[in-house]
Write a protein that binds this DNA or RNA. Structure first.
Length: 426
RNA sequence: GUGAGUGUAGCUCAAGGGCAGAGCACUGGACUGUGGCUCCAGGGGUUGGGGGUUCGAAACCCCUCACUCACCCCA
Protein backbone atom coordinates (compact mmCIF):
# COMPACT_ATOMS: atom_id res chain seq x y z
CA UNK A 1 0.00 0.00 0.00
CA UNK A 2 2.69 2.50 0.98
CA UNK A 3 5.09 3.10 -1.89
CA UNK A 4 8.61 2.13 -0.92
CA UNK A 5 10.10 5.31 -2.33
CA UNK A 6 8.44 8.64 -1.68
CA UNK A 7 9.29 12.19 -2.69
CA UNK A 8 11.99 13.68 -0.44
CA UNK A 9 10.77 15.67 2.55
CA UNK A 10 9.64 19.15 1.68
CA UNK A 11 9.42 18.36 -2.04
CA UNK A 12 5.96 18.65 -3.59
CA UNK A 13 4.59 17.05 -6.72
CA UNK A 14 2.17 19.36 -8.48
CA UNK A 15 -0.48 17.26 -10.21
CA UNK A 16 -3.17 18.05 -12.75
CA UNK A 17 -5.16 20.19 -12.85
CA UNK A 18 -3.03 22.32 -10.52
CA UNK A 19 0.19 21.95 -12.51
CA UNK A 20 -0.99 24.07 -15.42
CA UNK A 21 -2.59 26.55 -13.01
CA UNK A 22 0.71 26.85 -11.15
CA UNK A 23 2.47 27.57 -14.42
CA UNK A 24 -0.14 30.21 -15.13
CA UNK A 25 0.50 31.86 -11.76
CA UNK A 26 4.22 31.93 -12.54
CA UNK A 27 3.59 33.28 -16.02
CA UNK A 28 1.31 36.05 -14.77
CA UNK A 29 3.94 37.14 -12.26
CA UNK A 30 6.57 37.09 -15.00
CA UNK A 31 4.42 39.20 -17.26
CA UNK A 32 4.42 41.96 -14.63
CA UNK A 33 8.21 41.96 -14.90
CA UNK A 34 7.97 42.12 -18.68
CA UNK A 35 5.77 45.17 -18.26
CA UNK A 36 8.60 46.63 -16.20
CA UNK A 37 11.04 46.17 -19.06
CA UNK A 38 12.89 43.21 -17.57
CA UNK A 39 14.44 40.61 -19.81
CA UNK A 40 14.66 37.02 -18.79
CA UNK A 41 17.89 35.15 -18.14
CA UNK A 42 18.02 31.35 -17.88
CA UNK A 43 20.39 30.33 -15.10
CA UNK A 44 21.82 27.01 -13.89
CA UNK A 45 20.31 25.26 -10.88
CA UNK A 46 23.67 24.83 -9.18
CA UNK A 47 26.78 26.92 -8.81
CA UNK A 48 30.13 26.77 -7.07
CA UNK A 49 29.47 26.81 -3.33
CA UNK A 50 31.94 29.67 -3.03
CA UNK A 51 29.63 31.95 -5.04
CA UNK A 52 26.86 31.70 -2.46
CA UNK A 53 29.25 31.86 0.49
CA UNK A 54 30.73 35.06 -0.83
CA UNK A 55 27.52 36.80 -1.90
CA UNK A 56 24.96 35.72 0.68
CA UNK A 57 27.50 35.75 3.49
CA UNK A 58 29.35 33.00 5.32
CA UNK A 59 27.68 33.68 8.66
CA UNK A 60 24.11 33.53 7.34
CA UNK A 61 21.77 30.63 8.09
CA UNK A 62 21.37 29.92 4.41
CA UNK A 63 25.08 29.30 3.91
CA UNK A 64 25.76 27.85 7.34
CA UNK A 65 23.14 25.13 7.34
CA UNK A 66 20.56 25.29 4.57
CA UNK A 67 22.40 24.53 1.35
CA UNK A 68 22.35 21.28 -0.58
CA UNK A 69 26.07 20.94 -1.21
CA UNK A 70 27.88 18.15 -3.05
CA UNK A 71 31.19 17.24 -4.63
CA UNK A 72 31.15 16.33 -8.30
CA UNK A 73 33.36 13.64 -9.78
CA UNK A 74 36.16 16.11 -10.34
CA UNK A 75 36.16 16.96 -6.64
CA UNK A 76 34.70 20.45 -7.10
CA UNK A 77 32.21 21.67 -4.54
CA UNK A 78 28.82 22.84 -5.78
CA UNK A 79 25.51 23.80 -4.20
CA UNK A 80 21.94 23.80 -5.45
CA UNK A 81 21.02 27.47 -5.62
CA UNK A 82 19.29 28.75 -2.48
CA UNK A 83 18.39 32.03 -4.19
CA UNK A 84 18.80 33.69 -7.57
CA UNK A 85 20.63 36.99 -7.17
CA UNK A 86 24.08 35.43 -6.78
CA UNK A 87 23.67 33.39 -9.97
CA UNK A 88 22.33 36.28 -11.96
CA UNK A 89 25.14 38.61 -10.93
CA UNK A 90 27.71 35.92 -11.62
CA UNK A 91 26.29 35.51 -15.13
CA UNK A 92 26.09 39.27 -15.73
CA UNK A 93 29.72 39.69 -14.69
CA UNK A 94 30.95 36.61 -16.55
CA UNK A 95 29.37 37.75 -19.80
CA UNK A 96 30.30 41.43 -19.33
CA UNK A 97 26.74 42.67 -19.29
CA UNK A 98 27.45 45.32 -16.66
CA UNK A 99 28.03 48.80 -17.98
CA UNK A 100 28.65 51.88 -15.81
CA UNK A 101 26.96 54.02 -18.44
CA UNK A 102 23.62 52.30 -18.54
CA UNK A 103 21.09 50.41 -16.48
CA UNK A 104 20.18 46.82 -17.28
CA UNK A 105 17.10 45.01 -16.03
CA UNK A 106 17.20 41.22 -15.83
CA UNK A 107 14.72 38.67 -14.52
CA UNK A 108 14.87 35.00 -13.63
CA UNK A 109 12.56 32.34 -12.30
CA UNK A 110 12.66 28.72 -11.27
CA UNK A 111 13.23 26.35 -8.39
CA UNK A 112 15.41 27.21 -5.39
CA UNK A 113 16.59 24.79 -2.71
CA UNK A 114 17.01 25.20 1.02
CA UNK A 115 17.31 22.44 3.59
CA UNK A 116 14.78 23.65 6.19
CA UNK A 117 11.98 21.98 8.10
CA UNK A 118 8.94 22.28 5.86
CA UNK A 119 5.83 24.06 7.08
CA UNK A 120 3.01 26.17 5.68
CA UNK A 121 4.48 28.25 2.85
CA UNK A 122 7.93 26.74 3.24
CA UNK A 123 9.33 23.96 1.06
CA UNK A 124 12.79 22.57 0.44
CA UNK A 125 12.31 23.06 -3.27
CA UNK A 126 10.32 26.18 -3.99
CA UNK A 127 9.85 28.51 -6.91
CA UNK A 128 10.99 32.09 -7.04
CA UNK A 129 10.67 34.82 -9.56
CA UNK A 130 13.19 37.60 -9.25
CA UNK A 131 14.37 40.78 -10.91
CA UNK A 132 17.60 42.74 -10.68
CA UNK A 133 18.35 46.30 -11.78
CA UNK A 134 22.06 46.99 -12.29
CA UNK A 135 23.87 50.16 -13.28
CA UNK A 136 24.06 53.82 -12.31
CA UNK A 137 20.94 53.79 -10.14
CA UNK A 138 19.07 56.58 -8.42
CA UNK A 139 16.65 56.26 -5.50
CA UNK A 140 13.88 56.46 -8.11
CA UNK A 141 14.97 53.06 -9.38
CA UNK A 142 14.35 51.66 -5.89
CA UNK A 143 10.86 53.13 -5.94
CA UNK A 144 10.20 51.88 -9.46
CA UNK A 145 11.07 48.31 -8.54
CA UNK A 146 8.91 48.43 -5.43
CA UNK A 147 6.03 49.81 -7.46
CA UNK A 148 6.23 46.78 -9.71
CA UNK A 149 5.71 44.47 -6.74
CA UNK A 150 2.94 46.78 -5.62
CA UNK A 151 1.31 46.13 -8.97
CA UNK A 152 1.41 42.40 -8.28
CA UNK A 153 -0.27 42.97 -4.93
CA UNK A 154 -3.03 44.88 -6.69
CA UNK A 155 -3.34 42.72 -9.82
CA UNK A 156 -3.46 39.47 -7.87
CA UNK A 157 -5.66 40.85 -5.06
CA UNK A 158 -3.13 39.83 -2.41
CA UNK A 159 -5.12 39.87 0.84
CA UNK A 160 -4.09 42.24 3.64
CA UNK A 161 -0.57 42.97 2.46
CA UNK A 162 1.90 45.37 4.05
CA UNK A 163 5.08 46.87 2.66
CA UNK A 164 7.79 47.06 5.32
CA UNK A 165 10.66 49.44 4.63
CA UNK A 166 14.04 50.10 6.17
CA UNK A 167 17.50 51.36 5.29
CA UNK A 168 20.68 49.52 6.18
CA UNK A 169 23.00 52.38 5.28
CA UNK A 170 26.04 52.24 3.08
CA UNK A 171 29.58 50.85 3.48
CA UNK A 172 30.55 54.24 4.91
CA UNK A 173 27.98 54.65 7.66
CA UNK A 174 27.10 51.04 8.45
CA UNK A 175 30.44 50.11 10.10
CA UNK A 176 30.13 53.07 12.45
CA UNK A 177 26.56 52.14 13.33
CA UNK A 178 27.62 48.56 13.74
CA UNK A 179 30.17 49.59 16.35
CA UNK A 180 27.63 51.67 18.23
CA UNK A 181 25.22 48.77 18.15
CA UNK A 182 27.80 46.22 19.31
CA UNK A 183 28.74 48.51 22.18
CA UNK A 184 25.10 48.64 23.21
CA UNK A 185 24.68 44.88 22.83
CA UNK A 186 27.75 44.14 24.90
CA UNK A 187 26.58 46.51 27.61
CA UNK A 188 23.19 44.77 27.70
CA UNK A 189 24.49 41.26 27.10
CA UNK A 190 22.95 40.02 30.33
CA UNK A 191 19.41 40.39 28.99
CA UNK A 192 20.07 38.82 25.59
CA UNK A 193 19.56 35.20 24.53
CA UNK A 194 22.33 32.85 23.52
CA UNK A 195 21.77 33.22 19.80
CA UNK A 196 22.02 36.97 20.21
CA UNK A 197 25.35 36.59 21.98
CA UNK A 198 26.70 34.63 19.06
CA UNK A 199 25.30 37.13 16.60
CA UNK A 200 26.74 40.08 18.50
CA UNK A 201 30.11 38.78 17.39
CA UNK A 202 29.21 37.40 13.98
CA UNK A 203 26.38 39.44 12.54
CA UNK A 204 25.21 42.07 15.04
CA UNK A 205 22.46 43.56 12.86
CA UNK A 206 20.63 40.25 12.95
CA UNK A 207 20.23 40.64 16.70
CA UNK A 208 17.64 43.30 15.97
CA UNK A 209 15.57 40.61 14.26
CA UNK A 210 15.39 38.38 17.36
CA UNK A 211 11.85 37.50 18.39
CA UNK A 212 12.58 36.41 21.96
CA UNK A 213 10.44 38.76 24.09
CA UNK A 214 13.19 39.50 26.59
CA UNK A 215 15.55 40.39 23.75
CA UNK A 216 12.95 42.61 22.11
CA UNK A 217 12.54 44.42 25.38
CA UNK A 218 16.29 44.85 25.76
CA UNK A 219 16.46 46.18 22.21
CA UNK A 220 13.86 48.89 22.77
CA UNK A 221 16.56 51.41 23.62
CA UNK A 222 19.08 50.10 21.07
CA UNK A 223 20.51 52.64 18.65
CA UNK A 224 18.52 52.73 15.42
CA UNK A 225 20.28 52.65 12.10
CA UNK A 226 18.05 55.23 10.51
CA UNK A 227 19.30 57.68 13.12
CA UNK A 228 22.92 56.90 12.28
CA UNK A 229 22.85 57.15 8.50
CA UNK A 230 25.38 59.32 6.71
CA UNK A 231 24.01 62.30 4.81
CA UNK A 232 24.02 60.49 1.50
CA UNK A 233 22.23 57.42 2.82
CA UNK A 234 19.73 59.55 4.70
CA UNK A 235 18.97 61.53 1.56
CA UNK A 236 18.64 58.32 -0.40
CA UNK A 237 16.16 56.91 2.10
CA UNK A 238 14.20 60.17 2.16
CA UNK A 239 14.03 60.13 -1.66
CA UNK A 240 12.70 56.58 -1.64
CA UNK A 241 10.04 57.42 0.92
CA UNK A 242 9.05 60.54 -1.00
CA UNK A 243 8.78 58.52 -4.18
CA UNK A 244 6.52 55.95 -2.54
CA UNK A 245 4.43 58.73 -1.02
CA UNK A 246 4.16 60.35 -4.44
CA UNK A 247 2.88 57.11 -5.97
CA UNK A 248 0.48 56.55 -3.10
CA UNK A 249 2.12 53.28 -2.15
CA UNK A 250 1.61 52.74 1.58
CA UNK A 251 4.44 51.40 3.74
CA UNK A 252 5.47 51.04 7.35
CA UNK A 253 8.98 51.67 8.61
CA UNK A 254 10.74 49.03 10.65
CA UNK A 255 14.24 49.49 12.00
CA UNK A 256 14.20 45.77 12.77
CA UNK A 257 14.02 44.74 9.12
CA UNK A 258 17.62 43.65 8.53
CA UNK A 259 17.15 40.70 6.14
CA UNK A 260 19.00 37.43 6.35
CA UNK A 261 21.43 38.00 3.51
CA UNK A 262 24.59 40.00 4.08
CA UNK A 263 24.71 41.79 0.77
CA UNK A 264 21.93 44.29 1.34
CA UNK A 265 22.68 48.01 1.68
CA UNK A 266 20.52 51.15 1.76
CA UNK A 267 16.89 50.36 0.95
CA UNK A 268 15.50 47.02 2.10
CA UNK A 269 11.88 46.00 1.91
CA UNK A 270 9.49 43.13 2.49
CA UNK A 271 5.94 42.60 1.29
CA UNK A 272 4.15 40.54 3.92
CA UNK A 273 0.62 39.26 4.42
CA UNK A 274 -1.01 37.90 7.54
CA UNK A 275 -3.02 35.51 5.37
CA UNK A 276 0.05 33.32 4.92
CA UNK A 277 0.62 31.66 8.31
CA UNK A 278 3.95 31.99 10.02
CA UNK A 279 5.83 32.55 6.76
CA UNK A 280 4.41 35.95 6.06
CA UNK A 281 6.80 37.30 3.44
CA UNK A 282 5.77 36.83 -0.17
CA UNK A 283 8.21 39.22 -1.84
CA UNK A 284 11.33 40.89 -0.55
CA UNK A 285 14.54 42.50 -1.63
CA UNK A 286 16.73 45.52 -1.43
CA UNK A 287 19.68 47.48 -2.66
CA UNK A 288 23.04 45.70 -2.77
CA UNK A 289 25.64 48.28 -3.76
CA UNK A 290 29.07 46.71 -3.68
CA UNK A 291 28.04 43.13 -4.42
CA UNK A 292 29.07 43.24 -8.06
CA UNK A 293 32.57 44.34 -7.02
CA UNK A 294 32.67 41.65 -4.33
CA UNK A 295 32.00 39.08 -7.04
CA UNK A 296 34.81 40.40 -9.24
CA UNK A 297 32.85 42.72 -11.50
CA UNK A 298 32.70 46.48 -11.88
CA UNK A 299 31.58 48.33 -8.76
CA UNK A 300 27.99 49.21 -9.66
CA UNK A 301 24.86 49.74 -7.62
CA UNK A 302 22.18 47.07 -7.80
CA UNK A 303 18.73 46.45 -6.48
CA UNK A 304 16.55 43.40 -6.75
CA UNK A 305 13.77 41.38 -5.25
CA UNK A 306 12.38 37.87 -5.27
CA UNK A 307 8.83 36.61 -4.84
CA UNK A 308 7.79 33.11 -3.78
CA UNK A 309 5.41 31.58 -6.31
CA UNK A 310 4.04 28.95 -3.92
CA UNK A 311 3.25 31.75 -1.48
CA UNK A 312 1.64 33.81 -4.23
CA UNK A 313 -0.43 30.72 -4.99
CA UNK A 314 -1.58 30.41 -1.38
CA UNK A 315 -2.50 34.09 -1.24
CA UNK A 316 -4.34 34.06 -4.55
CA UNK A 317 -6.11 30.90 -3.47
CA UNK A 318 -7.32 32.73 -0.36
CA UNK A 319 -8.33 35.73 -2.43
CA UNK A 320 -10.09 33.53 -4.99
CA UNK A 321 -7.98 34.94 -7.83
CA UNK A 322 -6.30 31.72 -8.93
CA UNK A 323 -6.55 30.98 -12.66
CA UNK A 324 -9.35 28.52 -13.44
CA UNK A 325 -8.36 24.92 -14.13
CA UNK A 326 -8.48 23.90 -17.76
CA UNK A 327 -12.02 22.75 -18.50
CA UNK A 328 -11.34 20.41 -21.39
CA UNK A 329 -7.71 19.31 -21.45
CA UNK A 330 -8.77 16.78 -24.08
CA UNK A 331 -11.26 18.06 -26.63
CA UNK A 332 -12.35 14.73 -28.03
CA UNK A 333 -12.03 11.06 -27.14
CA UNK A 334 -12.35 8.43 -29.83
CA UNK A 335 -13.96 5.10 -28.91
CA UNK A 336 -13.87 2.03 -31.17
CA UNK A 337 -16.63 -0.36 -30.11
CA UNK A 338 -15.00 -3.47 -31.49
CA UNK A 339 -11.41 -4.63 -31.70
CA UNK A 340 -11.48 -4.35 -35.48
CA UNK A 341 -12.18 -0.61 -35.26
CA UNK A 342 -8.96 0.16 -33.42
CA UNK A 343 -6.89 1.07 -36.45
CA UNK A 344 -9.60 3.38 -37.76
CA UNK A 345 -9.76 4.96 -34.30
CA UNK A 346 -5.99 5.41 -34.15
CA UNK A 347 -6.09 6.99 -37.58
CA UNK A 348 -8.91 9.36 -36.61
CA UNK A 349 -7.07 10.40 -33.43
CA UNK A 350 -3.95 11.09 -35.46
CA UNK A 351 -5.81 13.16 -38.05
CA UNK A 352 -7.61 15.19 -35.39
CA UNK A 353 -4.23 15.98 -33.81
CA UNK A 354 -2.85 16.92 -37.21
CA UNK A 355 -5.70 19.42 -37.41
CA UNK A 356 -4.67 20.85 -34.04
CA UNK A 357 -7.34 19.28 -31.86
CA UNK A 358 -6.17 17.69 -28.59
CA UNK A 359 -7.50 14.14 -28.92
CA UNK A 360 -7.15 10.82 -27.14
CA UNK A 361 -8.44 7.32 -27.66
CA UNK A 362 -10.25 4.85 -25.43
CA UNK A 363 -9.02 1.65 -27.02
CA UNK A 364 -9.70 -0.87 -24.29
CA UNK A 365 -13.14 -1.74 -25.61
CA UNK A 366 -15.89 -2.60 -23.17
CA UNK A 367 -19.29 -1.03 -22.83
CA UNK A 368 -20.10 2.21 -24.54
CA UNK A 369 -21.35 3.38 -21.18
CA UNK A 370 -17.90 3.16 -19.64
CA UNK A 371 -16.49 5.02 -22.65
CA UNK A 372 -18.84 7.90 -21.91
CA UNK A 373 -17.87 7.90 -18.26
CA UNK A 374 -14.18 7.75 -19.13
CA UNK A 375 -14.51 10.62 -21.59
CA UNK A 376 -16.25 12.76 -19.02
CA UNK A 377 -13.71 12.02 -16.33
CA UNK A 378 -10.83 12.87 -18.67
CA UNK A 379 -12.45 16.22 -19.37
CA UNK A 380 -13.26 15.54 -23.02
CA UNK A 381 -15.92 17.73 -24.58
CA UNK A 382 -16.71 15.25 -27.39
CA UNK A 383 -16.90 11.51 -27.73
CA UNK A 384 -16.43 9.97 -31.18
CA UNK A 385 -17.97 6.53 -31.63
CA UNK A 386 -16.74 4.06 -34.21
CA UNK A 387 -18.98 0.96 -34.25
CA UNK A 388 -19.85 -1.65 -36.87
CA UNK A 389 -22.33 0.60 -38.68
CA UNK A 390 -19.93 3.52 -38.86
CA UNK A 391 -17.04 1.41 -40.11
CA UNK A 392 -19.29 -0.03 -42.83
CA UNK A 393 -20.45 3.39 -43.97
CA UNK A 394 -17.15 5.18 -43.44
CA UNK A 395 -18.60 7.59 -40.90
CA UNK A 396 -18.21 8.46 -37.26
CA UNK A 397 -20.74 9.54 -34.63
CA UNK A 398 -19.56 12.62 -32.73
CA UNK A 399 -21.45 13.61 -29.59
CA UNK A 400 -21.10 16.82 -27.60
CA UNK A 401 -21.07 15.68 -23.98
CA UNK A 402 -22.30 18.99 -22.64
CA UNK A 403 -25.20 19.68 -25.01
CA UNK A 404 -25.98 16.08 -25.94
CA UNK A 405 -25.96 17.06 -29.61
CA UNK A 406 -24.84 14.22 -31.87
CA UNK A 407 -23.96 14.18 -35.57
CA UNK A 408 -22.68 11.69 -38.11
CA UNK A 409 -19.57 12.78 -40.04
CA UNK A 410 -17.76 11.25 -43.00
CA UNK A 411 -14.44 9.77 -41.88
CA UNK A 412 -12.63 11.11 -44.93
CA UNK A 413 -13.19 14.75 -43.98
CA UNK A 414 -11.65 15.09 -40.55
CA UNK A 415 -10.95 18.76 -41.17
CA UNK A 416 -14.68 19.53 -40.96
CA UNK A 417 -14.92 17.68 -37.64
CA UNK A 418 -11.89 19.57 -36.36
CA UNK A 419 -13.43 22.91 -37.40
CA UNK A 420 -16.69 22.03 -35.67
CA UNK A 421 -14.83 21.07 -32.48
CA UNK A 422 -12.79 24.26 -32.51
CA UNK A 423 -15.89 26.38 -33.00
CA UNK A 424 -17.81 24.74 -30.21
CA UNK A 425 -16.08 26.62 -27.40
CA UNK A 426 -16.34 25.13 -23.93
C1' G B 1 18.24 21.32 14.74
C1' U B 2 13.86 21.78 18.76
C1' G B 3 8.62 21.24 20.12
C1' A B 4 3.40 19.96 19.57
C1' G B 5 -0.54 17.57 16.88
C1' U B 6 -2.10 13.75 13.48
C1' G B 7 -1.44 8.74 10.97
C1' U B 8 -7.85 3.59 9.83
C1' A B 9 -10.16 1.72 2.06
C1' G B 10 -8.08 5.75 -3.76
C1' C B 11 -10.35 10.49 -0.93
C1' U B 12 -13.03 12.61 3.61
C1' C B 13 -13.72 10.52 8.21
C1' A B 14 -16.37 6.94 12.23
C1' A B 15 -15.50 3.05 15.74
C1' G B 16 -11.88 5.18 22.82
C1' G B 17 -10.35 -2.80 25.01
C1' G B 18 -14.87 -7.39 22.38
C1' C B 19 -16.98 -9.24 14.37
C1' A B 20 -12.89 -2.72 11.02
C1' G B 21 -17.37 0.62 9.23
C1' A B 22 -19.90 4.89 6.46
C1' G B 23 -20.07 8.61 2.60
C1' C B 24 -17.74 9.82 -1.92
C1' A B 25 -14.91 7.42 -5.82
C1' C B 26 -14.19 2.73 -8.61
C1' U B 27 -16.28 -1.97 -11.20
C1' G B 28 -20.64 -4.58 -12.73
C1' G B 29 -26.05 -5.00 -13.27
C1' A B 30 -31.24 -2.99 -13.78
C1' C B 31 -30.64 -0.47 -19.36
C1' U B 32 -27.63 -6.01 -26.12
C1' G B 33 -24.92 0.88 -29.54
C1' U B 34 -25.42 6.36 -25.87
C1' G B 35 -22.84 9.25 -20.05
C1' G B 36 -24.71 12.57 -16.01
C1' C B 37 -30.24 10.86 -12.16
C1' U B 38 -32.09 6.55 -9.34
C1' C B 39 -31.89 1.60 -7.34
C1' C B 40 -29.15 -3.07 -6.52
C1' A B 41 -24.64 -5.78 -6.13
C1' G B 42 -19.29 -6.19 -5.99
C1' G B 43 -14.02 -5.33 -5.40
C1' G B 44 -10.98 -3.20 -2.35
C1' G B 45 -7.46 -2.88 4.70
C1' U B 46 -1.55 -6.80 7.74
C1' U B 47 -5.81 0.28 11.16
C1' G B 48 2.13 3.87 8.97
C1' G B 49 6.06 0.11 10.90
C1' G B 50 8.18 -2.65 15.20
C1' G B 51 7.86 -4.18 20.20
C1' G B 52 5.08 -4.48 24.93
C1' U B 53 0.53 -4.91 28.37
C1' U B 54 -4.00 -8.11 27.87
C1' C B 55 -7.88 -14.05 27.33
C1' G B 56 -8.53 -10.23 23.55
C1' A B 57 -5.42 -3.90 20.90
C1' A B 58 -7.24 0.37 15.53
C1' A B 59 -7.81 1.91 20.70
C1' C B 60 -3.46 1.55 26.41
C1' C B 61 2.39 1.87 26.98
C1' C B 62 7.43 2.26 24.62
C1' C B 63 10.37 2.88 20.19
C1' U B 64 10.50 4.28 15.13
C1' C B 65 8.94 6.46 10.50
C1' A B 66 5.91 9.87 7.83
C1' C B 67 2.87 14.09 7.41
C1' U B 68 1.08 18.80 9.41
C1' C B 69 1.76 23.13 12.21
C1' A B 70 4.92 26.10 15.15
C1' C B 71 10.06 27.67 16.87
C1' C B 72 14.05 29.00 13.93
C1' C B 73 14.80 31.04 9.19
C1' C B 74 12.98 33.11 4.87
C1' A B 75 10.37 33.75 -0.83
Amino acid sequence: MEPSIRAPRGIKDVLPPDASRFEAVLKEAESVLSLGGFQKVLLPLFESTALFARSIGGATDIVEKEMYTFLDKGGDQYSLRPEGTASLLRAAIEHRLLDPSRIIRLAYSGPMFRHERPQAGRLRQFTQIGAEVLGPLTPADDVDLISLIHRMAIDFSIPSWTLILNSLGCPLCRPAYRETLVAYLVKNAASLCETCHRRTAQNPLRVLDCKVPSCQEALEQAPRITEHLCTRSRNHFEDVKMGLDGLGIPYVLSHRLVRGLDYYTETTFEFVSDALGAQSTWAAGGRYDGLTAELGGPDLPGIGFAAGIERLWLLREKAGTLPDPEKHPVRIMVFPMETNGRVAALDLVRKLRNAGVPASGHFSGGKIKSAFRQAERDGALFLAILGEDELRSGTVQVKNLETGEQCSWPLNDVKKIADMIRESGG
